[in-house]
């Protein structure tokens, strides 16, 4: 990075942290004024000290860990199976025939409607939450992988075959790397979906995890608890989404791109 680029970046960072601080100060001021009651909007300092308390007592790390484990386990399942199905659809006529109508209907449908079905089949614990998350997150991965795999230049595949590469080699050395940008785009769409769905599952099924904790707080009119939950979840979401962007830049240093991705 050049010196001027560095200066620009630090300026942007300053502006960004400035407006976040402004938001927090505005929150605190609004909460302290008589415009809204403490119940509707507790002061940020009170919420922050609740978060600190919960962190020190160890409850927050446990709840956050449970939520992240479910969301990421579901996300990982969706990633692995979704890439598998997507590659199969692009490379195999029978697989394309079988999965195409399922994916074209399933992709835009609100999968969360199946939540009571998952509860009925898999109970109220981790398994049903993880499978529900995977089911909701898998469709964008399949669609992106199939499109990416289909778009791989066939001449590259042919020349690799000509050079004596096996089908397995072609898959791992040519097709997957060439489709990787689109596969990661699919994963970037799937990640926020995983978080959203895991949290809703926790809210509906109750029990441990940030979603369940927030719902209990709302039922007991503990607004500090609800806002603490929102801040925690917002931070967790932010970190995860920045992390996957970082992974993308790392894996795709060889790839030129500027595209923005539309996600939830």
């Amino acid at each position: 990075m050049s010196a001027s680029g560095l200066a620009g970046a630090s300026l942007r960072l300053l502006a960004a942290s400035g407006s976040v601080i402004a938001l927090l100060v505005g929150w605190e001021a609004l909460a302290r004024s008589d415009v809204v009651s403490d119940f509707l909007l507790p002061q940020f300092t009170v919420v922050a000290s609740r978060i600190a308390e919960d962190t020190l007592s160890g409850t927050l790390p446990v709840q956050l860990g449970l939520t992240l484990w479910r969301a990421l386990a579901g996300f990982a399942l969706a990633g692995v199976i979704g890439v598998g199905i997507g590659v199969m659809m692009a490379r195999n006529k029978a697989a394309a025939w079988f999965f195409d109508p399922i994916v074209s209907i399933g992709f835009p449908a609100p999968k969360i409607a199946f939540l009571p079905v998952f509860i009925l089949w898999f109970g109220l614990f981790d398994l049903s939450k993880i499978l529900m998350t995977a089911f909701a997150a898998i469709f964008p991965v399949i669609v992106a992988t199939a499109a990416g795999t289909e778009g791989v230049d066939k001449y590259i595949v042919w020349s690799a075959r000509n050079a004596g590469a096996s089908g397995r080699n072609i898959l791992y050395e040519i097709i997957l790397p060439a489709a990787l940008p689109q596969i990661i785009t699919g994963l970037q769409v799937a990640l926020p979906i995983s978080l959203i769905v895991t949290i809703v599952s926790e809210m509906v099924m109750g029990g441990e995890g940030l979603g369940g904790t927030m719902m209990v707080a709302a039922r007991f009119a503990d607004s500090v608890g609800v806002f603490a939950g929102i801040v925690q979840i917002a931070i967790a979401g932010y970190v995860l989404i920045k992390a996957i962007e970082l992974v993308r830049r790392r894996l795709l240093v060889w790839h030129q791109e500027t595209q923005q991705i539309a996600t939830f």
Binding site: A16, V20, F39, M215, A218, V226, I230
Partner: peptide, 26 residues
């Protein structure tokens, strides 16, 4: 842009379902 954009970027990744309990309270 200078005022709002950083806020949007910061809040955008929040899993939107976390808003459900707040909406119940509000």
């Amino acid at each position: 842009r200078i005022l709002v954009n950083p806020l949007v970027r910061c809040i955008y990744p929040m899993p939107k379902s976390a808003l459900i309990p707040v909406m119940i309270m509000w």
